[in-house]
Amino acid sequence: MAVELSTNGFQAARGIAALQAITGNLDIAGGAVFLNEAPLSDLQLMPGSGVKQAIGADEYPLFHKVSRNAQANLYARAILEEKPYPLKGLVVAGSNPVLTWPNAGRVREALSRLEFLAVIDPVMTATARQAHLVLPCASFLGGDELWDSSHISLEPRIGLAPRICNDGGLPTHWEIWREIAVRMGHSDSFPWSTEEEAITFRLKALELTYADLRDMPEGYAYHRWTAKKYEKEGFDTDSGKVEIYSDLLKRHGYDPVPTYAEPAESPLSTPDVASLFPLVLTTGARRLEYLHSRFRNVDSLRSRAPEPYVEIHPATAESLGVKDGDMVLVETLRGSIEVRAKRTPSILAGVISMSHGWDEANANVLTDDACLDPVSGFPGGRCLLARIVRR
C-alpha cells in the first residue's frame, strides 16, 4: 500500500529516503536509482493565460511547486464553502471521485451543488451517473498513448502504445480536450489538428516524430544510467547535498527532519472517539484484478474477485461474534457501509482492512478529508477509527 496515503506520508517517505542515503544506497544498482523521465514538450496552460491559481497552492505550496497540480482533496471545500474561490463547474476525466476521493458523502454533496458537471469516460461510473453531461470516449485501447519505462528500467525508453481497436469510433481523450480548448478560446495553445501532430510536438527535444516511434515497438532508449551521478552533479537542494535536515522545509514551517506525528484520529490522540470506535481501519489495499475503481465490469476479473470484504483477525472477530462470511456494518465518524467479513491471521488484531473502488461498498464513505498530510495534502486513509456491528 502506498506510504504517502497517510497524514505522516510525506515525512515517512523522507525517512525512507534518509535511510537510503545514510546506508549508501543512493543511485546504485539495487538501491534508489535516479533516472530522468523523457524530456517532453509541455501541453499545460501556464499561469497568465487566464488561468486562476490552483486550489491548494496556498495551503500546500511545496506540493504545488513540485507537481504543478491543484490539490483535489480541497475541491469539495471550494464547492461547498467557496474557499479560496467558488468552484461552479468541473470536468472529470480519468478519475472517479465518488469512489476514489476521501469522505465520499461530502464529495457526493459537493458534486450535486455544481452548476455543471461533465464526465469524460468510456464507462458509466458512479461519478458519471451524477453528471449533467457524460461524454463517452475511447478506452486506452482506442487511442495512441506514450509510455515511459524510466520507473522500472535502468535503460529508460519512451514508446508508443498504438491504437488497437475503436469499433465505436469514439473520440479519444485528446480529441475531446482539444475541442474544449478551442471552444474556450485557447486554440493558439492547441494548434495541432491531429493527435499525431501533438505527439510529434511533445517529442521535439528527442528529435523524434510520431512516425518514428510507431516504427519502434521496442521504444527509444533516451538515457543510459550511470551510478552515483551526484558525485559530479550534486543534488537539487539548497546545499547541493543530501539534506536530512531541510532548511527549505523549515522556511515553509514544516518539520525539517523526518518526524512522526500521531494521526488526528487514533486511540492515543482521540481516546474518547476510540471508546466508541475501537478498531483501527486501513483502506486502499489493492486487489490484483483491479486498479482503483477500474475493471469491475470485466467478467473474467469479476469472477476472480466477485465482491468486497473487510479483513479482520480471528481473535478480533471472535470478540465481536463475527464469523467468516458474515455481513457486517463497518462504521466511522463519516458514515457506514455493509460488507462481508473475512477472517485472516495475516492482519494485526484490532486492525481491519478494506480495499477501495467498490460501488456497492465504497470504502471512502468511511475516510476523512479534513485532516490531511500538512505538506502534500494527501488524505489519511491508513489511520482511521472504526467499529464493526454484526448484521
Rank of each mutant, 00 (worst) to 15 (best):
1 M>N: 06
5 L>R: 09
7 T>I: 08
13 A>Y: 00
16 I>L: 07
17 A>G: 06
18 A>I: 00
22 I>P: 00
24 G>T: 01
24 G>P: 00
26 L>T: 00
29 A>W: 04
32 A>G: 07
40 L>H: 08
41 S>T: 04
42 D>G: 02
47 P>H: 08
48 G>M: 10
52 K>C: 06
55 I>P: 01
56 G>C: 03
57 A>E: 13
58 D>H: 13
60 Y>S: 07
60 Y>Q: 04
62 L>H: 06
63 F>Q: 03
65 K>W: 05
69 N>C: 10
71 Q>H: 03
71 Q>G: 02
73 N>I: 02
80 L>K: 04
86 P>A: 14
88 K>N: 10
89 G>P: 05
91 V>L: 15
93 A>I: 10
94 G>N: 04
95 S>Q: 10
97 P>Q: 11
100 T>N: 12
103 N>L: 05
104 A>T: 07
109 E>N: 12
112 S>W: 08
123 V>Y: 14
124 M>K: 14
125 T>L: 06
134 V>N: 07
135 L>S: 03
138 A>G: 07
140 F>N: 10
140 F>P: 02
147 W>Y: 15
148 D>L: 05
148 D>M: 00
149 S>P: 09
151 H>R: 09
156 P>G: 02
161 A>G: 01
167 D>F: 14
173 H>T: 11
174 W>A: 05
176 I>P: 02
186 H>I: 01
187 S>Y: 08
187 S>E: 14
195 E>I: 04
195 E>N: 12
195 E>Q: 15
196 E>N: 08
205 A>D: 13
206 L>Q: 04
208 L>V: 08
209 T>D: 07
215 D>G: 11
216 M>W: 01
216 M>Q: 06
218 E>W: 11
221 A>Y: 04
222 Y>P: 03
223 H>F: 15
224 R>W: 04
227 A>G: 05
227 A>F: 00
232 K>R: 13
233 E>T: 03
241 K>S: 05
250 K>P: 02
250 K>G: 02
252 H>V: 06
256 P>N: 04
257 V>S: 03
259 T>H: 10
262 E>Q: 11
264 A>V: 03
266 S>R: 07
267 P>E: 10
271 P>N: 09
272 D>G: 09
274 A>G: 05
278 P>D: 12
282 T>H: 13
282 T>R: 15
290 Y>Q: 09
291 L>F: 13
296 R>M: 12
297 N>G: 15
298 V>E: 14
298 V>K: 12
299 D>K: 13
302 R>L: 14
304 R>G: 01
305 A>G: 05
306 P>N: 11
307 E>Y: 14
307 E>S: 14
308 P>W: 03
312 I>R: 01
314 P>Y: 05
316 T>P: 08
324 D>K: 06
333 L>A: 05
333 L>T: 03
338 E>L: 11
341 A>F: 06
344 T>Q: 11
345 P>S: 14
353 S>W: 00
354 M>V: 10
357 G>L: 05
360 E>F: 04
371 C>F: 13
374 P>R: 09
375 V>G: 02
376 S>P: 00
377 G>M: 02
377 G>Q: 03
380 G>Q: 04
382 R>E: 10
383 C>M: 12
384 L>H: 02
384 L>V: 01
384 L>P: 01
